[in-house]
Measured scan of single mutants.
Amino acid sequence: CFKERTRSLLREWYLQDPYPNPSKKRELAQATGLTPTQVGNWFKNRRQRDR
């Protein structure tokens, strides 16, 4: 489970760009304390949910 602060940050970035490039994923990973893989998976799952 991600912290609420982490989730809200991911949601904000998702609204700006649902397909972040690898450098954006690394930047988000540093900002949230997650790994780039976790960030990528979150975006993938979120895109799937929005279908």
Rank of each mutant, 00 (worst) to 15 (best):
13 W>K: 07
20 P>T: 02
30 Q>L: 11
37 T>H: 12
33 G>E: 01
32 T>I: 05
41 N>L: 06
18 P>I: 06
32 T>S: 07
25 K>P: 02
23 S>L: 08
3 K>E: 14
43 F>R: 03
43 F>M: 03
13 W>L: 11
42 W>K: 01
17 D>L: 04
3 K>L: 07
13 W>G: 10
44 K>R: 12
36 P>C: 10
27 E>Y: 06
46 R>I: 03
32 T>Y: 00
35 T>S: 13
45 N>S: 09
11 R>M: 14
2 F>A: 11
22 P>L: 15
50 D>Q: 09
16 Q>G: 05
45 N>Y: 04
17 D>Y: 00
49 R>M: 10
5 R>K: 07
30 Q>H: 11
28 L>M: 14
26 R>E: 14
38 Q>C: 07
8 S>M: 14
25 K>I: 14
33 G>L: 02
9 L>W: 05
17 D>T: 02
8 S>P: 02
46 R>Q: 13
21 N>C: 14
8 S>V: 13
37 T>F: 04
11 R>G: 09
20 P>A: 07
15 L>Q: 14
4 E>R: 04
3 K>P: 08
29 A>S: 12
18 P>G: 01
21 N>L: 08
28 L>S: 02
32 T>P: 03
11 R>Y: 07
31 A>T: 11
36 P>D: 05
7 R>E: 11
14 Y>W: 04
31 A>P: 01
28 L>A: 00
33 G>Y: 00
29 A>D: 00
28 L>R: 01
43 F>E: 01
4 E>K: 11
3 K>H: 04
18 P>L: 01
25 K>M: 14
6 T>D: 06
20 P>C: 06
10 L>P: 01
13 W>E: 13
24 K>Q: 12
47 R>T: 02
51 R>M: 06
12 E>M: 09
5 R>G: 12
15 L>W: 06
23 S>Q: 13
11 R>L: 13
36 P>Y: 13
49 R>L: 08
47 R>M: 00
45 N>Q: 10
39 V>P: 00
3 K>T: 12
40 G>H: 12
8 S>Q: 15
43 F>P: 00
44 K>E: 12
35 T>W: 02
50 D>A: 05
45 N>F: 07
11 R>I: 14
15 L>T: 11
15 L>V: 10
19 Y>W: 08
42 W>Y: 07
14 Y>V: 01
8 S>W: 10
21 N>Y: 01
39 V>Q: 03
51 R>A: 13
7 R>M: 12
28 L>E: 00
33 G>P: 03
25 K>D: 03
27 E>D: 10
9 L>N: 03
12 E>F: 07
48 Q>F: 07
18 P>Q: 09
23 S>P: 08
2 F>R: 09
37 T>V: 12
48 Q>G: 09
23 S>G: 13
42 W>L: 00
37 T>G: 12
23 S>T: 14
20 P>G: 03
19 Y>G: 02
7 R>Y: 14
7 R>L: 09
14 Y>G: 02
14 Y>M: 01
2 F>E: 14
12 E>R: 05
50 D>L: 05
37 T>W: 07
20 P>W: 00
18 P>W: 04
42 W>H: 04
6 T>H: 15
51 R>C: 03
8 S>E: 15
33 G>S: 05
39 V>E: 00
32 T>G: 01
15 L>N: 13
40 G>K: 15
45 N>D: 11
36 P>V: 09
18 P>A: 10
26 R>K: 14
33 G>A: 04
44 K>W: 05
13 W>R: 06
11 R>S: 13
30 Q>E: 13
39 V>S: 01
41 N>P: 05
21 N>A: 11
4 E>P: 12
36 P>M: 14
38 Q>D: 00
44 K>D: 08
39 V>G: 03
19 Y>T: 09
18 P>D: 02
38 Q>S: 04
42 W>E: 01
43 F>T: 00
39 V>I: 10
47 R>S: 04
4 E>L: 05
29 A>P: 01
18 P>R: 11
9 L>H: 07
38 Q>T: 07
37 T>K: 15
44 K>L: 07
39 V>T: 05
1 C>E: 08
21 N>D: 15
22 P>C: 08
7 R>F: 07
4 E>V: 04
18 P>H: 13
22 P>K: 07
47 R>N: 06
21 N>V: 11
12 E>A: 10
48 Q>H: 13
20 P>N: 01
15 L>Y: 15
28 L>V: 11
10 L>S: 04
14 Y>H: 00
43 F>H: 02
8 S>K: 14
16 Q>K: 10
31 A>R: 09
31 A>I: 11
6 T>K: 06
35 T>K: 03
28 L>Q: 01
45 N>G: 05
17 D>M: 02
24 K>Y: 04
27 E>N: 00
8 S>F: 10
15 L>E: 12
13 W>H: 08
33 G>F: 03
43 F>N: 05
2 F>P: 10
42 W>S: 00
36 P>S: 09
45 N>A: 07
8 S>T: 13
49 R>N: 10
45 N>L: 09
40 G>Q: 10
10 L>K: 01
10 L>D: 00
39 V>H: 00
27 E>S: 09
9 L>R: 08
30 Q>T: 14
2 F>D: 15
31 A>D: 06
36 P>L: 12
16 Q>L: 10
13 W>M: 14
27 E>G: 02
17 D>Q: 02
34 L>Y: 03
6 T>S: 08
48 Q>V: 06
19 Y>F: 12
16 Q>W: 08
17 D>F: 02
44 K>F: 07
24 K>G: 07
5 R>L: 09
29 A>F: 00
5 R>H: 06
11 R>W: 13
41 N>C: 07
32 T>F: 01
9 L>Y: 14
39 V>C: 00
39 V>R: 01
22 P>T: 15
3 K>N: 15
22 P>N: 10
41 N>G: 06
22 P>M: 09
22 P>W: 15
34 L>R: 02
40 G>A: 11
15 L>M: 09
48 Q>D: 08
25 K>N: 08
36 P>G: 05
51 R>E: 11
13 W>I: 11
46 R>D: 04
7 R>H: 15
46 R>P: 05
35 T>I: 03
46 R>F: 05
32 T>R: 01
21 N>Q: 06
41 N>A: 06
7 R>K: 15
5 R>Q: 09
10 L>I: 01
40 G>F: 02
51 R>K: 10
6 T>W: 07
16 Q>H: 11
40 G>V: 05
25 K>W: 08
10 L>H: 01
28 L>G: 02
35 T>Y: 02
22 P>A: 12
17 D>I: 01
25 K>V: 13
35 T>R: 04
11 R>H: 10
1 C>V: 07
30 Q>N: 15
8 S>R: 14
16 Q>S: 09
50 D>M: 03
10 L>R: 01
35 T>H: 03
47 R>K: 05
27 E>A: 06
24 K>F: 04
2 F>T: 12
5 R>A: 13
21 N>R: 08
6 T>V: 14
36 P>E: 14
12 E>D: 12
6 T>M: 12
47 R>Y: 00
35 T>E: 02
11 R>T: 15
35 T>F: 03
32 T>K: 00
30 Q>V: 11
37 T>D: 15
3 K>Y: 10
40 G>M: 05
